[in-house]
Structure formats: structure tokens, C-alpha cells
Design a binder for these strands. Structure first.
Lengths: 182, 182
DNA sequence: CAGGTAACTAAGCGCTTGCTTAGTTTCTCT
DNA sequence: AGAGAAACTAAGCAAGCGCTTAGTTACCTG
């Protein structure tokens, strides 16, 4: 799975051959099929576990914060850090899921919607208690997720900034975007 | 090129066959090679003309605004609208360029850097004349581009909102992000 | 330490891929 | 009308693809 994550992240699902994955894992081409029934099954396992890991992270971050402001700040920092530290898995999660079979795609889409509504709920609570000022919570949630998700697109391990620094930057941008603390 | 843009945007460069492109253009498989020497050449032509079109759009938007605030607002609205209206080309521009040959990739990367610095310059001028308050103009420019670029990822023609509406939303978010008008 | 199971490989099958070749049709211009 | 160029197609080649099969090695358990 690690070899597949690396290859899918680097070249995309269709540009990756099962021979790439096998040799990346130190196996013969047939060795992959002892553990996975198909290349798509490998993508699905990676995609599902990646989505679940990101979802757990979001829930934990929200659980840690006492106020919507704290929750948003922690959530944005941790979610961004995850996209940096796990940038290979994150790329698979964000950019390869449409290569899944329709059934598998539907399963993963449900997890993605859940992530979206977790963020929107934090915004709505912040608006309700007056901490945030936001025109439309759906649009703003989407923009927040765009900033974090896009990290997986531009990040490269050659970049010097640490995950914590990038996370803190995005957390600060998030607070600005919702008008917290004016 | 239109058939290729549609196929590349829908399935990605490697998942698209030259036969897909040919039949999309109403040609036989060999007919494509009358006009393009290879599949990669087709991607390069699309990618370059797409980047150039986006770059022209940014320059025009900046030229229209009298102040950095106006420039940022127009730029963000137009750039977002472009990602909606030309979402197939935009997807190729944003997500397929790493499948180019090293030489072609380098050429396109130069155009991408140019786009980035156009946005950062607007931010810097806004900070200089006191209209914006921004911690780091590079980080903020990246976040602004993330919000706009990500439109190509989530947009679908089934969505009811018009390009203009989405553009206006993102322009408003951009002004918030740079602390304009407090 | 025998017996069963899981992990693995060498070889390769059937198919699809990007692209070519040889030949035909369509267009353009005088 | 007719020549030359450009646009196109039918057929197919060599290479690479996902995946299978038959057989071998490594491992765990009683």
C-alpha cells in the first residue's frame, strides 16, 4: 500500500502500472495479487483509509476546542499538517478518487460530505454565538477546505517550511476569512 | 483540441486514449496524427494556450483596477469565472501539466510563476499603501490562488450557481482574506 | 519435525495502447 | 478541368498493460 501510495501520488492512478507497485514493494508483478484482487482495490483501500484518517483528525480537532474559534483554528492547523505530512496519501485522497468504481466512489463521497459538514457546523456555531461574521457558511467552508486541500497539490518535500509552520499559517488565514476577533 | 480537453478533463491524460480523442473529434484514430505529432504534443498545446489565456485574463483584470483593492477584486472574480466557464481547460491546466515532457513542463512552469507573482505584486502594493493588512504576501497569494484554482476541482456543470455568482463570492472572500476595508 | 497454509515467483495470455504506413478522398488554386 | 497539396482512413505493428496459472519457497502449528 505504501508503494502504491507513492506511485499513485507521483504519477496518478492510470500512469502507474502494477509492475511499478510490485517493484516498489520489492515483489514480483504477481506478488501484488496475493494481497489485492486488482489495482482498483488497492486504490480503494488507500482512498478509504486515507479519508477515514482525515475524518478522525477533524473530529479530534473539533473535540479539543472549547469555542468555535478554537475549534476552527485547531482544525485548520491539523488538517493542513496532515496534508503536508501525509502528502502522498493526501494526493490520492484528493485527486484520484474519481478513478474508483461507481460503488467505491459512492462510499468515499459519503466520507467527503461528512468532512464538509463538520467544517460547516463549526462555522454555523461560530456565527450563532457571534464569534464569526460570514456571508455564507457553505461557500466559506468550501474556501477553507480549498486552502487546506490545495496543500497536497503544491507541497513538495524539497520545501523548507515545517508542517507546523504551514499549519499555523493556514489557521491564521482561516480566522481572517471568518472575521474572527475584530 | 476541444475533444482532447474534454477527455483529459474528464478522465486524466493517461486514462485518455488517442482513440477517445479521435472519436470525440469525429475522426479515425489516425486522423489525429495529421494535426498533432503525439498525444503529449496535444496536451502541451492545450496546456500552453490555457496558461496564456489565464495569464492574459489576470493582466487585463489588474489593468482595469485603479487601486490594489479594485485590482484584487476584479482579478479574483475574473479568474474564478474563467475556472468555471473553462473548467475543462482549467482542469487540464491545473492538474495535468506534470504529465508533460521535462522541456514542455519547464516552459509551462514559467507561465505559472508569472501568474503567482502578478497576484503577489497586487498584494504588496495594497500593503504598501495601507489598503491591505497581510502577514506574508507569498502565503496569502497562494491561498487566494488555491481558492480560485480549486474551483476547477469541485465545479460541475450540474451546479446551478452562475460563473458570475461564484466569481463574486470568491472576490468577497479575497477582500476579507487581505483585511481590506476594516 | 511432518503437514498444511500462506506468500511468493516465472512465464505468459489476451488485450489495449500510441503510433505508422500505404493508399484514398477532398480541397484549393490556376 | 486538372494538378498539387492537405486531410483523411483502413489496417496493423511492436510494446506494454492488467491479471492468471502452475509451481516453488517460507512459515506456522501440533
Amino acid at each position: 500500500m505504501q508503494a502504491a501510495a507513492q506511485a499513485f501520488a507521483e504519477k496518478g492512478f492510470h500512469a502507474t502500472t502494477t509492475r511499478d507497485i510490485a517493484s516498489g514493494a520489492g515483489l514480483s508483478p504477481a506478488g501484488v495479487y496475493v494481497h489485492f484482487g486488482s489495482k482498483e482495490e488497492l486504490l480503494f483501500n488507500l482512498s478509504r483509509s486515507g479519508h477515514e484518517s482525515a475524518l478522525r483528525l477533524l473530529r479530534r480537532a473539533i473535540g479539543e476546542g472549547a469555542t468555535p474559534t478554537e475549534q476552527l483554528e485547531t482544525l485548520m492547523a491539523r488538517f493542513t499538517e496532515w496534508h503536508v505530512e501525509q502528502y502522498q496519501v493526501a494526493r490520492v485522497v484528493q485527486y484520484e478518487h474519481h478513478h474508483l468504481t461507481p460503488e467505491h466512489h459512492a462510499e468515499v463521497l459519503a466520507l467527503r460530505k461528512e468532512m464538509d459538514s463538520l467544517v460547516r457546523d463549526v462555522l454555523d456555531r461560530g456565527v450563532a454565538d457571534g464569534a464569526f461574521s460570514v456571508d455564507d457558511s457553505a461557500d466559506t467552508a468550501l474556501a477553507l477546505l480549498s486552502i487546506a486541500v490545495d496543500v497536497a497539490r503544491w507541497y513538495s518535500p524539497t520545501i523548507k517550511r515545517t508542517p507546523t509552520e504551514i499549519g499555523a499559517t493556514n489557521a491564521a488565514l482561516a480566522l481572517r476569512l471568518v472575521g474572527a476577533g475584530r
